Amino acid sequence: MPELLDLLDIKNCIVTADAMSCQRAIAHKVREKGAEYVLSVKENQPNLLESIRDYFSAFTHDCRFEQTVEKNHGRIEKRKYFLETDLDWFEERVGWNGLHGIGAVCSRVEEKGQTRTETRYYITSLRDVSSFAYAVRGHWGIENNLHWCLDVAFGEDSSRARKDNSPLNLNVLRKTALPMLKNADLGRMGLKKKMFRAALSTDTLSFILNPQPLKK
């Protein structure tokens, strides 16, 4: 990711990333490029996660928060976005360039008579809870849409690849193929139909990989 960030103009943007990219080098690169960051914290950063989770378990009621409610097709999702920017006590902030806040997002989903809850944790260079909430919502929107496409077109959820780096390698290949398929102008045709046509025709496959006028 640091190499990718070198290629992009992200000044004055907010960079959001999942837990795999929650790394000091990435936070440093984002700040170096003049941008803000919101990074998800999970088990790959155990000390960071434990400290943030313990804090919000004890002091959520003292934190600034913003709340949203979304209703879609019988599903109601309520989210509370908490942000704490007084981090003098937070020993794990050392080494994280521009870390100004820790955040928690508590979601409660009611659907088909059932209720489920989830809490996610973040570190961020942002100081404003509204900006933090906006960034997290934007990340989830992109993530959910991408995941839906990968599952529908490539059956990612049913993939049985588990050994070594195969899940990551296949995920990279799917995410590389997806924009190629979307950008291939083959008329009114869904992703699966494009894939099927590419399997039957080397001309179509070549067009998707390297867009050129199709042979007639």
Rank of each mutant, 00 (worst) to 15 (best):
H61T: 09
V30N: 04
N44V: 13
F82E: 01
F56T: 00
K33D: 07
A25F: 05
P46G: 13
D62E: 10
P46K: 11
Q67E: 13
I26D: 02
Q67F: 01
K80C: 12
N72G: 10
L49M: 10
N47K: 11
H61A: 12
A35K: 07
Y37A: 08
R24A: 15
V41S: 00
V38I: 11
P46A: 12
K78R: 15
K80Q: 14
I26F: 07
E84S: 06
Q45N: 15
D62H: 09
V41P: 00
N72T: 13
Y37C: 08
G34D: 04
V69N: 07
R64S: 12
R64N: 09
D62N: 09
E70P: 01
K33E: 04
E32A: 10
F59K: 13
L49T: 07
E43F: 07
C63G: 02
D54A: 08
H61N: 05
E50C: 03
N44P: 07
E50Y: 02
S40R: 09
K33Q: 12
L49N: 06
T68F: 00
T60M: 06
N47M: 04
A27V: 10
T60E: 09
S40M: 14
S57I: 04
D62G: 01
D88N: 13
N72A: 14
E70T: 06
H28N: 13
V69F: 04
G74V: 04
D54N: 10
D54K: 06
H73L: 07
F56H: 02
A25S: 15
R79V: 10
A35W: 00
H73I: 04
N72D: 15
L49G: 01
E50M: 02
E50Q: 11
H28V: 02
A27Q: 11
S51A: 13
L48N: 00
E70I: 04
K42E: 03
V38Q: 01
F56I: 02
N47I: 01
A27W: 06
C63T: 03
Q45F: 13
H61F: 07
G34C: 06
R24P: 08
I26K: 02
T60L: 02
F65A: 01
L83M: 09
R79F: 14
H73N: 13
S51M: 05
K78P: 06
D86V: 09
N47L: 08
R75L: 08
T68C: 01
Y81C: 12
K71G: 04
N47E: 10
T60G: 03
F56Y: 03
T85D: 10
D88G: 15
K71E: 15
F82Y: 15
F82M: 08
E70N: 05
N44I: 15
D86P: 07
S51T: 09
L39C: 12
R79I: 06
T85N: 13
Q45I: 05
I52C: 06
F82P: 01
V69Y: 04
I26Q: 03
H61Y: 05
F82A: 03
S57F: 06
R64E: 10
T60C: 03
L83H: 03
E77T: 08
R75N: 06
K71A: 12
A58F: 01
K42R: 14
C63S: 04
R75W: 06
F59G: 00
L83N: 07
I26G: 08
N44M: 12
R31S: 10
S57G: 11
I52N: 03
Y55E: 08
